[in-house]
Amino acid sequence: MRFRFTGIFDLFNQKNEYYLINKKLDTIIQINESMYKVLSNAKQGTELNCNEINLNTMNILIYNRVLEAIN
C-alpha cells in the first residue's frame, strides 16, 4: 500500500525544532528530525516506505489524516 501527505497539515522547521501543524486549526505537534524527513519526502511526493515508520505511529498519522492511502 502506498501513502501520500494529505496537505491538511504543514511541516515547519524552525532552528532545528520540527513541527507538524494542522493548517486550518493551528493545532501543533512537535516531531523529531527523522519523522520530519520522512514526512517532508511524503509531502514532496516521494513514495513512503512503510519500514521507515512503526505501525503505531503510522496508525496515528493516518487516523489524523496526516497521511492517506493511495488506491
Binding site: Y19, I21, Q30
Partner: peptide
Amino acid sequence: MKRDLNKPIV
C-alpha cells in the same frame, strides 16, 4: 513525539 513546548508557536 514531545508533548511540551517551551514557547507559543502560533
